[in-house]
């Protein structure tokens, strides 16, 4: 019986803590065990179970790109017992990680295509992994457009990276905040994400749209994309249902015949059509 206990987390050291927005932090994590570090690989879109010992586990995507070796990052908002426990940890502390779990964005298939990223609020982290993955292999893709919105200027996460993407000549970056969420010196767009997508009107030709955000944003963005000519197999999203085990056993994220943790979290809109929309 030398098989690994699926539920036993890897021990990780918090190498760096970045405060992103009110209540939102990014942790950079390094494996404490070198053997485990050496054996670890993941791909864009995968997620993990993060442990605050004493509080429990919480599910987040891996927010860093697989092209950046030697660490993984996660970004989370403090909302409950586990994220509260994680949030109180400082640089140098130990936490747990299980993963990587789930499927991945088909980056290989997307070679030679334009990429359109559409994200809202705290849903940028799963997208950030893909964005950096694409930018680190920039020659593989044509135009890269990022449309990112949050409630207020304060709620935008990865502020320094947003600036970096804005300044890159090979990225078209559009940031927006909900009406009323702007500051006097705000130079970005003002309006809800679906509205801004419609206004920017990116071309659907040879383009993959990756959409990630709260259910209400997704609901209103899909029709806009359809209007712009995007068909279902050109649209991707990543779902975050409630999970406990992360490996298809605990039953929580079962939606229709699919399990978000195993068949997802990445789905094309075409695949999403196979499962009941009311249950995710």
């Amino acid at each position: 019986m030398s098989e690994r206990n699926t539920y036993l987390p890897y021990l990780m050291t918090i190498d760096k803590v970045i405060k992103e927005a009110p209540g939102v932090k990014t942790f950079r994590l390094k494996f404490q065990n070198e053997e485990e570090a050496a054996g670890f690989t993941f791909q864009a879109g995968q997620f993990g179970e993060y442990s605050a010992f004493g509080e429990g586990e919480s599910t987040f995507c891996i927010a860093s790109s697989p092209t950046r070796k030697g660490y993984i990052e996660c970004t989370f908002r403090e909302t409950g017992r586990v994220t509260g426990g994680l949030s109180s940890l400082e640089e140098g502390s130990t936490m747990g990680f299980r993963g990587p779990y789930g499927n991945t964005f088909p980056m290989e298939e997307w070679k030679g295509k334009n990429l359109l990223f559409i994200a809202g609020g705290i849903a940028l982290p799963p997208m950030r992994c893909v964005i950096w993955n694409a930018l680190d292999l920039r020659e593989n893709f044509k135009d890269v457009t990022i449309i990112y919105g949050a409630k207020t200027v304060n709620d935008l996460v990865y502020k320094s990276e947003l600036k970096e993407w804005e300044e890159r000549p090979d990225v078209r970056m559009i940031t927006t905040v909900d009406p009323g969420g702007e500051t006097p010196d705000w130079k970005g767009e003002i309006g809800f994400v679906p509205t801004i997508v419609e206004k920017v009107a990116p071309s659907a030709e040879n383009t993959i749209a990756i959409v990630c955000g709260p259910p209400i944003m997704i609901k209103f963005t899909f029709p806009v994309l359809a209007k712009l000519g995007f068909t279902d197999e050109m649209i991707y999203t990543t779902l975050e249902n409630r999970m406990k085990c992360g490996v298809g056993k605990c039953g929580r994220c079962n939606v229709g015949k699919l399990y978000i943790c195993k068949d997802g979290p990445v789905f094309s809109k075409e695949q999403l059509n196979l499962i009941p929309a009311e249950e995710y």
Partner: peptide, 20 residues
């Protein structure tokens, strides 16, 4: 179907799987 819970006693703890 199961839940995963934390049983904490000071600096010691146990992660518990229980019926759900």
């Amino acid at each position: 179907c199961f839940d995963i819970q934390e049983d904490v006693h000071g600096s010691k703890g146990r992660r518990i799987r229980c019926w759900d």
